[in-house]
Computed example of a mutant assay.
Amino acid sequence: MVLHLLPVRPPARMAGGLGVPADGVAGGPATGPRAGFVVGKAVGNSVVRHRVTRRLRAVVRDELDRLPDTADLVVRARPEAATATSEQLRRDLSAGLDRVLGERSASRRSRS
Rank of each mutant, 00 (worst) to 15 (best):
R108C: 02
A22S: 14
G16W: 13
A71P: 00
V74L: 15
G16T: 10
R49G: 08
V38L: 12
G44S: 06
A12H: 09
L64E: 03
K41W: 02
R55F: 05
A58H: 07
M14R: 11
L97Q: 04
P7H: 12
R49W: 15
V38K: 04
G17M: 14
R78P: 00
E87H: 08
L73A: 02
V20Y: 09
A84L: 15
D23W: 08
S105F: 07
L101Q: 04
S86G: 15
A106C: 02
A95Q: 15
P11K: 08
L64Y: 10
D23K: 08
D98A: 08
L93P: 02
L73Q: 01
A30V: 15
G27T: 07
P7L: 07
V74K: 02
R104F: 05
T31G: 05
P33N: 13
R54E: 05
Q88L: 09
V52F: 01
F37R: 01
R91E: 14
D69Q: 14
R49C: 10
A30E: 12
L67T: 04
A81D: 02
S46H: 11
R49S: 13
R54D: 01
P79L: 10
S86E: 09
A106I: 05
L101N: 04
T85D: 05
T53V: 04
R34M: 06
R76A: 14
A71C: 10
A106V: 01
P21R: 11
A84P: 00
R55Y: 03
S94N: 09
G96A: 04
R57Q: 07
Q88N: 07
D69R: 15
F37Q: 00
G40I: 05
D69V: 12
T70P: 01
A26H: 13
R91D: 07
V2F: 08
S86A: 14
A81H: 02
V20E: 13
T70Y: 06
R90A: 15
R34P: 05
A58L: 01
V74Y: 02
G27A: 11
A95L: 11
R90N: 09
V39K: 00
L93M: 11
L93K: 04
R51K: 09
V25Q: 11
A95W: 07
